[in-house]
Design a protein around this nucleic acid. Structure first.
Length: 132
RNA sequence: CCUUCUCUCCGCGCUGCCGCGGUACGCCUCGGCGUAUCGAGGAAAGUCCGGACAGCAUAGGGCAAUACACCGGCUAACGGCCGGGGAAUGGGAAACCAUUCACAGAUAGUGCCACAGAAAAUAACUACCCUCGCAAGAGGGAAAAGGUGAAAAUGUAGGGUAAGAGCCUACGGCAUGUUUCAGUAAUGGAACAGGCGGGUAAACCUUGUAUGCUGAAAUGCCAUGUAUACCGGUGGUCGAGAGCGGCCCGUUCAAGAAAGCAGCAAUGCUUUCACGCCGGAGGGUAGGCAGAUAGAUCGCUUCAGUAAUGAUGCGGCCAGAUAAAUGGCAGCGGCCCGAAGCCCGGGAAACCGGCUACGGGAACAGAAUCCGGCUUACAGGAGAGAAGAUUUU
RNA sequence: GGUCCUGUGGCCGAGUGGUUAGGCAGAGCUCUGCAAAAGCUUCUACAGCAGUUCGAAUCUGCUCGGGACCU
């Protein structure tokens, strides 16, 4: 296998895309709120290789314009990309498949630093919960 | 030089690190890596119109529904654009100029026109005139006068008459018709004729024209998956067709006539026949490929045309995502606003202009099948044109 | 992505071109020893901008807001 040069990636295959999986995540998943974001996650035992599927969302109720929604989703994805390595090893150690969805639930557009803080705090909390 | 308006164009740039989507090539452990290259807009928006494309429907006619409406042209098409005509408004002494216009029909019919007013559409309350009557008043004539109102029955003058009236005449006004001239036409000029009984059609309507319905979540293929399922009345088989349905599986229905012709009715046509039937409630999949990105394409040249636009030639390839890519951080520069400084220029001065440390700001907004328009939003900048004001010469 | 409906005081709501009803709520007054109830008075409105019309909440166009449906 060729050695990966970079680990801070977030490709299309790492994103949560399937309607059924998303429905399952929202019906069966656990959730907690932290500041302006709400985290929904669901773990299953990995069969072949442990992995991670991610999704972000912003409600049309809070931001009417598509430009604002796109901006917030991009900032959240960027924050997840930069803090992914903090908890990916934990997931792999536990041998779990983790589906994760992050929703933004405020009416103000956050700056990037604030997004990073929120996501890192959420990741720490999530790591604590996953560690038995 | 300043202000305002109109039109056209642009709507931050560069560098570094990390990251995302498509395509091409290479590598291998076959789903990843590497390299190269491309990667939001003038409105991508609103979804207000028109098409392309796709599926279904399609015997003809009538009614209904919706939209449009001066003329000519452009266009794939349009409710769009261009040119012309007419009207209104504003400026002006006028010539004329600018802006706007949903700009067919009100003698085809119906409705409505509050309040005020005699009366709001075949108008008689007062005043006027005639007749009858002692009088009060009654009958008739007559739209010339009457404080209203958004709107009052074609204006002025004369004749005429009992009093009056387009009742008649002259000069006007308004629309209509005929002829003629100019123009492709709308229309405009002139002459003649007969007329003049308000407004409202973004009230119903009439006339003319156009429109089959549904929309890429359309549609085709592949994969996955379930049910040859269940309940009540009474049991089995076949069953064209129809209904349910996004699709599939399936399920339901029908007899002496039934069904269809997808807004409605009639005529007509088509299909089916073999005997007995009615109702209820459901299951699965929702993933991939195509559609789908080379086109009514873009840039430039030349030609035709007043123009919209069209044609010829040369060159180019310019997003294709799908819980939805084009981002994050940092630095430098440019732009705009404010400005200490008193540095520079002009000036007698007031002051004006320039420069700079520093501080602040950078709009509206994100493709979702694709095009042509319309409408709306938009910090700032550039160019062209028009109007106005001030100063200097 | 597409289709449709709707907007009248603080709230609910009537109003088919001619002075924007009514109820609840608020304020004041009367009544009462004080309150409640009742009565009277009052305040606050046609989402915005244009057009048609003598006149627009109503008709037409555009914009803004709210909601529903197809999936």
């Amino acid at each position: 296998m060729h050695q990966k040069k970079h680990f801070y990636t977030l490709k299309a295959t790492e994103r949560l895309k399937h309607r059924k999986k998303i429905d399952a995540l929202f019906t069966a998943g656990q959730k907690f709120s932290l500041g302006e974001i709400r985290v929904v996650y669901h773990t299953t035992q990995a069969e072949e290789q442990a992995g991670l599927l991610l999704g972000v969302g912003v409600s049309k109720r809070y931001f009417k314009k598509a430009v604002d929604r796109n901006l917030i989703k991009r900032r959240l994805r960027e924050a997840i990309r930069l803090s992914k390595l903090d908890f990916l090893p934990i997931v792999k150690e536990a041998g779990l498949n983790l589906d994760l969805f992050i929703l933004y639930t405020s009416k103000e557009i956050p700056c990037f630093d604030h997004c990073l803080e929120l996501v890192q705090a959420a990741v720490k909390k999530l790591a604590r919960k996953l560690k038995p």
